[in-house]
Structures are given as structure tokens and as C-alpha cells.
Design a protein around this nucleic acid. Structure first.
Length: 901
DNA sequence: GAGTCAACTTAGGAAATTCGGA
DNA sequence: TCCGAATTTCCTAAGTTGACTC
């Protein structure tokens, strides 16, 4: 897998205003943009613009200073100034342009230069072997003075050369002369671990988890009742609020109505958005357990050292898990094999093969007979008739029907995942130390259900009793268990389209919109804090800068038994490298072990800070932000805006960027062109959020085919041209543009292409012959003989001989009935088809490693899509699939064409 | 105040389904 | 109508956040 390799793509299909950012445009959080439109929203933040967008030459290093805006504008918040993505060719994303303290344009980024494996394997990340080693010694405060920024981090900590204590050091002051703080902690405090602020007054906790949750929620419940939280932000927002349809308060529909109508329009109610009590009555059937294991036919056996093994069902099932995967990458992965084999051996110890063979090496295990059996079964399934398939589906639906819906306060609501996860091998991503581990089969005894007090207790569909039954109406899960591999909790929730999820989704976007009002101040604050004399503050400011500008995730600490992935706060020394004067290169594995690789031009102060945070004695494996935790960041943010956390910036920046980029929609374009603009905006957001997908295995084959198709079109064009010249040799002078040969039209290709065409023509002739005969027979007429077919095939071959002659002579006789006019028209059409095919191929290439769905589902306010669809008269179903429409009914109801984020 | 846990959101890959062109 | 490609849905892993405990 690789990080999107946008650096290479230089496709020129760009929306207006995007000229500099052909394809890889790494869109950014609201950022300075070349097209400073008159609207307030688009005013530049800074004097300096994003170079990459400004010069349009794809060179991110170009003009960092572009005195577009007045100095007064410099002070303007980024939020007012959506950033523009940079182009494919742009090597860098500029975050901030100069030493100036003023905030500025968004970063210009260079994406990974070349595709590299998305999941970086084995490239052992030098990670401290224990948590304590992760914390580097604290730098001395004096290092923080401006003049001293360049100096390495505190020597004092360096003396012992040992990694700092596990705890993050406490807030530390800078004792610079220039910035001498009067209330800074003494240096002795430097040694103290960073404080994670304590939770507010501890509440008595009961011994059971559910009881404690309940007590916790009770407190919340008391707070609730005041609708404040539920008031949509937009109500208080001039423009946006004004535009909102007046549906909200109007109707206080009685619930009974909703019971009739499946679609409960919670957004029309004064529903509790984030209150504590989530339901009053709740009925459901908990989970559906998978059917018990069915042993394989007796003749299907794995082999060990060539000997077929007769395994008891218990061990055969586990063998089958691996057997089904032998042709996947997992089966070749050393860690996966190691973990699987460890668990497999343990099962074999308990359920050994009849043959009494001791299985000692995975290499001697041959699961192929099992694999082939599974393949045959798949084929059989595929080969079933429509009716057979239908019958199976009906039986399955019938069995699942009772589990699909829950009844919440009398309303039918769909469940998300009602199936208990089947046993299998844990498919941890990236270098997960537990990948390959056996995931046990769940039993009712593993599962706690959460259900209304009055509701009938569901009976598990397999023998056994639930582990527990609780009636906690402050949570939204219906069933819960702990998986055996990592000890993680798993839940059954309602579906994405349910009112619970809808409400929290809407609240999430409203929170992001609320940030618009605060973001200027927040940016000003962290920009000032970049120079703070307190190390912790300076680190926090720098981290916030990245969270805001680069859409980094918060980055919690992770355990040793998890994949080594990081986010902002957990970045380590080796994840950022500095290239003077102001380029920071990020290279780390983020969530899901997705590589984040970007070269970013940053504010000079940020550059200085990173240098400081990396200074000796810090070394590989040490935390970059050794005085920072996610909870400190979030505490700080919460102080600036209630409910603000690091992740809100991703939502905010994603939606903001999307809104900005949608402005490039061609007003008079076709629906297809508008959708292309929409997808481009979507892609910008996906790149901003680093949403990747692995390039499909046969992408190159696909691309080759598409290229051949384009060449085939060019071949046709050439034939048309040559006919034209035969018809009117003078036209070459009249239309010199037609005189030029098509590119990529070498003899080799033409020969190959003609051979392909001949083969197809012969094939088609044979098919037609057979088809005609069937028809003749049906009509009771005499069938054609083989001689007829041979005759036809002969004709075709002769025609193709002609092609060869034409190729050699570069002359084509005009086909019967053609005229110059017709040929010109055909050539024009061919040109269009070639152009379209090229654009399509380019688009495919640009999107081959970018996943659009994640941002559409989670980050882009759906009201933006609804409003855009209305404004540009594009059917919503072209943008939202059925499930997305089910997920966002509230957006459809709320947003009109003028809705803005 | 560090560590743990509960509850929820976000995420990519696999499987299923639909689409579209020959 | 068939078949491969594209899109959608399903599945479950992997995050974030904040409360709670020790």
C-alpha cells in the first residue's frame, strides 16, 4: 500500500481556480488562496499566499511571499480564508510562509514521491522498547528564549543519557531574558511529570461497570433538561440560520404518529441531542449467533508432511480459517503465521488428529485441499440458478428478520451489526503484534445485553444464557462483549440511519460549525504560544498548528501489544525531519497503519520549535512532544470553546475545504461535469484527511487496457484521416491540424491491434452463424451449411489483409458512401471520445489510491451536498447512495440551495 | 496524575450488488 | 445476456474522548 502518489500526476483537468493544482492538490484547511474573491470568506489571511496555488506552476517553492492582501488582512483568521490545495507537481505544502508571526496560508505539501507499500512492513520502527523510554529528557527552559531557540534541548537531562521517565514532564517555564515570565515554575519542576488534569470530583463508583456507568450518567441526566445543547448552532448564526427551513420548531408531532411512520423525524422534534437518558423503552433480540461449525467432507483433509490428517471439528475449523487464506497476503506474513500457528497448536493439543501425528511446523502443513474445497464451494454457489440463490436469500432473510430492528420508545429502529462476530483469525492491520491470533467463537455467556426493564428477555439462538442483562438507558448499545484477542470491547449499536446516530452526527457537524466562530481566536492564540516560554505551551501550540493545518489526529499513546502507529501528540523524533529553511517532512504510520508522508513548508517559528523539540539529548524513539498528551490538548481546547476537541478540527477543516472547493463547480456544465467537480472537491478532502485505499491488484492491467482503448480510438481516427486525404489530398494544406500523425501509433501496436480485431471479427462471425442457424431452425427453415461460414470467414480475412496493405502504404481508400463532410464529423467525434477517455483514465489514476467514501460519510457536512445538489440541480442520488440517504435524512430536510457551512 | 475502561466514531478491505458495454 | 468493472454495503479494526480508579 502506498500513500497517495500524487506527486506524479499532472493531469490537467482542473476546476477553475485550481489551475496550479492539477491533480494532487492537497487541499487544506481553510487557507490562503489565489483567488481572493470578494466575499469575506475568501479573503486572504496573509500577505503571503500559498505559493503553489498562486503561481500555478506546480512548484511549491515558488513565491512564498505574495503580497496579495493588505496588512490588515493578514490578521484575518484562516477560517475566513479557505486554503487551496496544491497541485500534483507541487512538492510542498506550505503552512506558513515566513518568520513572521502572522498566521498565513495553508501549507503546501509534497505527497510521497513514489508509491511505497501502504502498509509498511517490517521496516522496524525504532520504537523504544518500553514506554518509559519514550519520554525524552526535558529541555531546559532557557532553551526556549527566542535567541536560544536554535539551541539544543536541555543539557541537564542529557547528563544521565537515559530516557526520561515514562511520565511526561510537567509544564515548564522558559527563563529567557527577553520573555522572562514572572510566574514560571522553577526548574526543579521540569523533572515533574506532566499533569493530566484530574477528572472532576470523583463520584462514588459502584463495583460493577454498568452500575458505575449508570451513576455517571445520572449526573448527566440532571444537567440535561435544558435544551440548550440541542439548539442547533445555526439558530444563532446569521446567514446559515436564516436560511434554514423553518421545520424545526414548527411541529411538535406526537410520538404516536411516528409509530405509524417508520421514519421518525427527530430533527423536527425538540429531541434530546446529547442528553443522558437515551431511551425509555427498548426491545430487541440482541445478537444472532452464526451457525455451528459444519465439518468438511471426509475426503477434504489438510496434510502434514504429506500425510492427510483427520482432525476433530474443533481443530479442523481452525485449520480451515487458515486454509481459506492461503492465497492472501496474511498467510505469507511471518507474524500472522507465528500467531496462528501458536494458537493452532494449542487447539491441536486439545483436539489432536486421529493419526496421532504431532504437528510441529507450519511449513509442513498443507492446507491446499481445504482451500480448493472452499473454492469449489464458491463456484458451486456461483453456478446456482437464480431461483436457488433466491431461495437461500429468502431463508437467510427470514432467519435474520427478528434481529434487524429494535423498538426504541415504540419506534422501529434498525440495528447496525446484529450478527455476533464469527470465529476466525484476527486480521490486525499493519504490524499488529497479534495478527493471526485465533478469535474465539462467541457464546451467549460472553455477551451482556442492554434492554428495557419491561422488555422480554430475548432467547439466544444457540444454547446458553446471556452473560448479563442490564437496563442502562443512558447508553445506546444493545449488546456488548469483550473479544479475546486484544480484550477490546465490542458493541451492537443501532444503524447509521437511526435517530441516535443521526442526532449525534448532526451535533458533530454543528460543533464543527461552532468552531467557525472561535477559530480565529484559537489560531491567534496558538500562534502566539508558538513562542511561549513555557515548554508545554509551546509544544501544545505547535501540535495545534499541525492538528489545524495538517488535519492530524490527536494521537493517543498506544500499548506495546498494538501496531506502532501515531498521531500528532505521539509523534516521535524519527517521524519529522527538518530541511532548512522551513520544511518539515512528516513520515509516519497513522491510523490503520496508513502512511502519512508530507513535506510541508511551515512557519519559521514552527520550524524553530521542532528543531528545539528534537534537540539533544533526544534521539530516535523519543516523543517529539514530550510534555504533551491528547488530554492536555483537549483540556486546552475545551477552555477555548466548550466541547472543542482535536477531532473537531478534522470535521471543520474537511467541511470547510469542501465548501470552498465546490465553488469551482461549472455553473453551465453538464450534470457529469458538475459531478466531476463535486468529486474533485471530495477528493481534496480525502487527501487532506489522508484517506487512502490500496491500489487494486490489477490496476496496472486495467490501466493498460484503458490505454490500449485510447490507442484503438486513435487508430480509428487515423483511418478516417487517411480516407479524407484520399478523398481530397489538398485538405492537408487546408487543415494542417489533421496532417499530424496520432501519437503512440507505432507499427507494432497497429499490427497487434489488427490481429486482435481480426480475431474478434472471426469470433463474432462464428457466433452470428450459430445464432442465425438457431433462428432458422426455430422458424422451420433450412440451416446454413459450414460452407457459408467458411466463406464469410474468408471474406473477413481478406478485409484484414487490406488493412495490412493500408498500414504499409499509409493510404486508405475511402469507404463506400463517405463524404468529406461525414469524415470530418466523424473525426471530430473521435477527438471527443479520445479526450473523454483520456480524462477518465486520468481521473482513475488520480483516485487509484484515494478513498472518497470515508470523508463523505464522516467528515463532510451532508447539508453541503444537499445544498449543492439543489443549487446545481443534480439529483441527490447521484451523490449519496441509498444508505447515505438513509443516514442523512435530516440534511435533506434542513438544507436548501443557499445553505452554508 | 498515570493508567484503565466504557462508549462511541472513524476506517479500510472484503463481499455483495449493480452497472454498463460488447 | 454475459462478464468484468465499478460501486455499495458489510464487517470489524482502530481510533478518540472523557470518566473513573488506584
Amino acid at each position: 500500500m502506498s500513500a497517495p502518489s500524487h506527486a506524479a500526476d499532472g493531469m490537467a483537468v482542473v476546476a477553475p481556480n485550481f489551475e496550479s493544482t492539477p491533480s494532487t492538490l492537497v487541499t487544506h484547511a481553510p487557507q490562503v488562496d489565489e483567488d481572493m474573491s470578494s466575499s469575506e470568506d475568501e479573503k486572504p489571511l496573509l500577505k503571503r499566499k500559498n505559493t503553489t496555488t498562486a503561481n500555478g506552476n506546480g512548484n511549491g517553492n515558488g513565491n512564498q511571499q505574495s503580497g496579495g492582501a493588505s496588512s490588515s488582512e493578514d490578521e484575518k483568521p484562516l477560517s475566513k480564508k479557505p486554503r487551496v490545495s496544491n497541485g500534483a507537481a507541487n512538492k510542498k505544502r506550505r503552512v506558513v510562509a515566513s518568520d513572521s508571526d502572522e498566521s498565513d496560508a495553508g501549507p503546501s505539501v509534497k505527497k510521497e514521491p513514489e508509491p511505497t507499500p501502504k502498509k509498511v512492513n517490517g521496516t522496524a520502527k525504532p520504537r523504544s522498547s518500553n514506554a518509559s523510554a519514550k519520554k525524552a529528557p526535558p529541555p531546559s527552559d532557557s532553551d526556549l528564549s527566542d535567541s536560544e531557540d536554535e539551541k539544543p534541548l536541555a543539557k541537564k537531562a542529557a547528563t544521565n543519557g537515559k530516557p526520561a521517565s515514562k511520565a511526561k514532564p510537567k509544564k515548564k517555564a522558559v527563563s529567557s531574558d527577553e520573555e522572562s515570565p514572572n510566574s514560571e515554575p522553577s526548574s526543579s519542576e521540569d523533572e515533574k511529570p506532566l499533569a493530566k488534569k484530574k477528572a472532576p470530583a470523583a463520584k462514588p463508583r459502584t463495583s460493577s461497570a454498568s452500575a458505575s456507568a449508570a451513576s455517571r450518567k445520572k449526573v448527566k441526566a440532571e444537567v440535561k433538561s435544558e435544551d440548550e445543547d440541542d439548539v442547533p448552532l445555526a439558530k444563532g448564526k446569521g446567514k446559515a440560520a436564516d436560511k434554514k427551513p423553518a421545520v424545526k420548531k414548527e411541529k411538535k408531532v406526537k410520538q404516536e404518529d411516528d409509530e405509524e411512520d417508520d421514519s421518525y423525524k427527530w430533527w423536527e422534534q425538540d429531541a434530546n441531542g446529547d442528553g443522558s437518558v437515551k431511551w425509555t423503552t427498548l426491545e430487541h433480540n440482541a445478537v444472532l449467533f452464526p451457525p455451528p461449525y459444519v465439518p468438511l467432507p471426509k475426503n477434504v483433509k489438510m496434510k502434514y508432511d504429506g500425510v492427510p490428517l483427520t482432525l476433530p471439528p474443533e481443530s479442523e475449523e481452525v485449520a480451515g480459517f487458515f486454509g481459506a487464506m492461503i492465497e492472501t497476503d496474511h498467510a505469507a506474513d511471518a507474524k500472522f503465521r507465528e500467531n496462528f500457528f501458536k494458537d493452532f497448536k494449542a487447539v491441536l493439543d486439545q483436539y489432536p488428529p486421529k493419526e496421532n501425528v504431532k504437528v510441529k511446523s507450519l511449513d509442513k502443513c498443507d492446507f491446499r485441499p481445504m482451500f480448493e474445497h472452499f473454492e469449489r464451494e464458491k463456484e458451486k454457489k456461483k453456478a446456482m440458478t437464480k431461483d436457488e440463490k433466491k431461495a437461500i436469500k429468502e431463508a437467510k432473510d427470514k432467519m435474520e428478520a427478528p434481529y434487524i430492528y429494535a423498538t426504541v420508545d415504540g419506534r422501529k429502529e434498525k440495528l447496525g451489526n446484529f450478527r455476533a462476530e464469527p470465529p476466525g483469525l484476527f486480521r490486525g492491520r499493519g504490524e499488529h503484534p497479534k495478527k493471526g491470533t485465533l478469535k474465539h467463537r462467541l457464546r451467549p455467556e460472553d455477551i451482556i445485553i442492554n434492554i428495557g426493564k419491561e422488555a422480554p428477555i430475548p432467547k439466544p439462538n444457540i444454547p446458553g444464557e446471556w452473560k448479563g442483562i442490564q437496563h442502562d438507558n443512558t447508553v445506546t448499545w444493545l449488546a456488548h462483549w469483550k473479544e479475546n484477542v486484544n480484550g477490546n470491547a465490542k458493541y451492537v449499536f443501532l444503524s447509521a440511519g437511526s435517530s441516535w446516530k443521526g442526532q449525534s452526527d448532526r451535533a458533530k457537524f454543528e460543533k464543527a460549525r461552532e468552531l467557525i466562530k472561535h477559530v480565529d481566536k484559537i489560531r491567534k492564540d496558538y500562534t502566539a504560544d508558538l513562542k511561549s516560554k513555557v515548554m508545554a505551551d509551546r509544544q501544545r501550540a505547535t501540535a495545534l498548528y499541525f492538528i489545524d493545518r495538517l488535519a492530524l489526529r490527536a494521537g493517543n499513546e498506544k500499548g506495546e501489544d498494538e501496531a506502532d502507529t501515531v498521531g500528532c501528540c505521539s509523534l516521535r523524533y524519527e517521524h519529522v525531519t527538518l530541511t532548512p529553511p522551513n520544511i518539515v517532512t512528516f513520515d509516519f504510520l497513522g491510523k490503520d497503519s496508513m502512511r502519512f508522508f508530507q513535506e510541508v513548508e511551515v512557519d519559521a517559528q514552527v520550524f524553530k520549535n521542532i528543531k528545539l523539540f528534537k534537540a539533544e539529548p533526544k534521539k530516535k524513539g523519543d516523543d517529539l512532544f514530550d510534555r504533551l498528551t491528547t488530554s492536555l490538548v483537549n483540556k486546552h481546547l475545551n477552555g477555548m470553546m466548550p466541547g472543542l476537541t482535536a477531532k473537531v478540527f478534522r470535521t471543520y477543516n474537511a467541511s470547510w475545504t469542501f465548501q470552498k472547493q465546490l465553488k469551482n463547480t461549472p455553473k453551465n456544465g453538464t450534470v457529469a461535469e458538475k459531478i466531476a467537480a463535486y468529486n474533485t472537491a471530495n477528493r481534496d478532502v480525502a487527501i487532506l484527511c489522508n484517506h487512502q485505499k490500496s491500489v487494486s491488484k490489477n490496476y496496472d492491467v486495467m490501466k493498460g487496457k484503458a490505454e490500449d482503448k485510447i490507442r484503438a480510438l486513435k487508430y480509428q481516427r487515423m483511418k478516417l484521416r487517411l480516407q479524407l486525404f484520399s478523398l481530397d489530398p489538398k485538405i492537408k494544406k487546408k487543415r494542417p491540424d489533421l496532417a499530424a500523425d496520432e501519437s503512440d501509433m507505432d507499427d507494432d501496436f497497429m499490427e497487434r491491434h489488427e490481429a486482435d480485431l481480426l480475431e474478434k471479427a472471426l469470433e463474432n462471425a462464428k457466433k452470428k452463424f450459430e445464432k442465425d442457424n438457431v433462428k432458422l431452425e426455430e422458424e422451420g427453415e433450412k440451416k446454413k451449411g459450414k460452407g457459408d461460414l467458411d466463406e464469410r470467414l474468408k471474406e473477413i480475412k481478406a478485409e484484414f489483409k487490406e488493412l495490412k496493405k493500408e498500414r504499409k502504404s499509409r493510404k486508405v481508400e475511402p469507404r463506400r458512401g463517405v463524404t468529406e463532410e461525414k469524415l470530418l464529423e466523424q473525426i471530430n467525434k473521435m477527438d471527443e471520445r479520445i479526450a473523454t477517455a483520456k480524462v477518465q483514465l486520468g481521473d482513475k489514476d488520480k483516485l487509484k489510491d484515494v478513498a472518497l467514501g470515508t470523508s463523505k460519510i464522516n467528515y463532510i457536512d451532508p447539508r453541503l451536498t444537499v445544498a449543492w445538489a439543489k443549487k446545481y440541480d443534480v439529483p441527490l442520488e447521484k451523490l449519496f447512495s441509498k444508505t447515505l440517504r438513509e443516514k442523512f435524512p435530516w440534511a435533506e430536510a434542513e438544507a436548501d440551495a443557499s445553505w452554508v457551512f
